[in-house]
Computed example of a mutant assay.
Amino acid sequence: MFIHPWDDALDDAEWQTWIADGHDFGILSANGLPGRAPMAVPTHFTVDDTALLVHLARPNPVWKAIEADPKVTFTVTGDYAFIPGPWRAKPGTPPTDGVPTSYYAAVQFTCRATVIDEPGAKAELLRRQMAHFQPEGDHAPMDPGQAPYGRMLPGIRGLRLDVTEVHAKFKYDDHKPVEQRTDTARRLTDRGAALDSPTAAQQLRRVDRVGTWNA
């Protein structure tokens, strides 16, 4: 993932906070088997210290690719919007001279995958995930041999993705003048389509932290 200096995360806490703020769905990418294209699997995940926890159906073909090469990437994107050219025109130039772009936040993890097949370990992984996604509980015990989840465990495999490298990108025109970025956030809020509102919030957050960009 290419990252301009002005799009880089300001510190680790920035991307960690962004992930913790409900960005828990991404794309697992594994190298393809010889002669095959790379594989990409959309899935929820849970953070466990320096690892990501995932579970997938046993028939998923990605398992063969992971077993052949456990080095994988996991990419999370969000808070994205298309920015029309006129919004980005330089002051004093025709609006039609503005070049459109995309705003987005993205965190890409390079990981080493470990497959989890032992029933007790799989149940523990599911308990950790449910503690995140359904913290109020309201579900049957997740234990091997105990219905209903116990009989479902053979149908899934767990995956621990130990993170070895992180690249984080917050692409919100931080190299543009503060006034222009603030106005773009206003335009996004007024347009109010899809993820315009959270995109505007990210831009204003970066404006507050970055101010005028200095190389």
Rank of each mutant, 00 (worst) to 15 (best):
T77K: 01
D24F: 10
G35K: 10
D208E: 12
K171A: 07
P198D: 01
I116C: 05
Y149V: 12
D49A: 14
H175E: 13
A40R: 00
Q146Y: 08
T77A: 14
R186E: 14
Y172N: 01
I19G: 01
H175Y: 09
F170Q: 03
A20M: 10
T96E: 15
G85A: 04
A131W: 12
P61G: 00
Y80H: 15
R191I: 04
T212F: 04
L28C: 12
D12G: 03
A131R: 14
P148S: 08
G35V: 07
R157Q: 09
A20N: 07
P34V: 06
A81N: 01
F74D: 02
R205D: 10
P34N: 01
I83K: 02
D208K: 13
E136D: 14
P141T: 05
Q146I: 15
T93A: 11
A68P: 04
Q203Y: 09
I116N: 05
Q203N: 09
A68I: 08
P34H: 10
R88T: 13
T184A: 10
A193V: 14
W213A: 01
P198S: 07
K71N: 13
A65K: 01
W6L: 00
R209F: 06
D48P: 03
R206S: 07
S197T: 15
L56T: 01
P95V: 10
A147G: 04
V178M: 05
P5H: 07
D7A: 12
H167G: 10
E67H: 11
A193C: 12
A168K: 04
A13D: 15
L52H: 02
V210H: 05
M39G: 06
A121M: 09
P141I: 12
T199I: 06
V210W: 06
N60S: 13
R128V: 03
Q108A: 14
G35C: 03
T96R: 15
A215P: 11
T46G: 01
F170D: 02
W15E: 03
P144V: 08
Q202E: 13
